[in-house]
């Protein structure tokens, strides 16, 4: 596969390592009185859609950016890729 890196253009997926569901961005940061149920859901519950999926890829053999890649898991079509830090900040 080719990943459309937002800064470097198309790069072969071999340069990346895969993590999974981009919902991992949404850590329930609530300081010391965090809700264990929320952490349970965050840690263990994932969607595994047959279709469009937002997922995390790390450009390990590249610029070390974490990307949020939107991919159709049925066709492998890639609909977009953004810097995860931009996504987290609400910029993308």
């Amino acid at each position: 596969m080719l990943i459309p890196h937002p800064l470097l253009g198309l790069r072969d997926a071999q340069e990346f390592t895969y993590l999974g569901d981009a919902s991992l961005l949404n850590r329930p940061d609530t300081g010391t009185d965090a809700d264990p149920e929320a952490f349970f859901a965050y840690t263990h519950l994932r969607d595994n859609p047959a279709g469009v999926h937002r997922e995390l890829w790390f450009h390990e053999q590249g610029d070390r950016s974490w990307l949020v890649v939107t991919r159709n898991t049925l066709t492998h079509e890639i609909l977009g890729a953004e810097l995860a830090s931009d996504v987290k900040r609400g910029l993308a």
Partner: peptide
Amino acid sequence: NLPPAALCPGRAARTG
């Protein structure tokens, strides 16, 4: 595994 344009004179890349 990079297209030639990515490594023409003046270009640099981090890759595998």
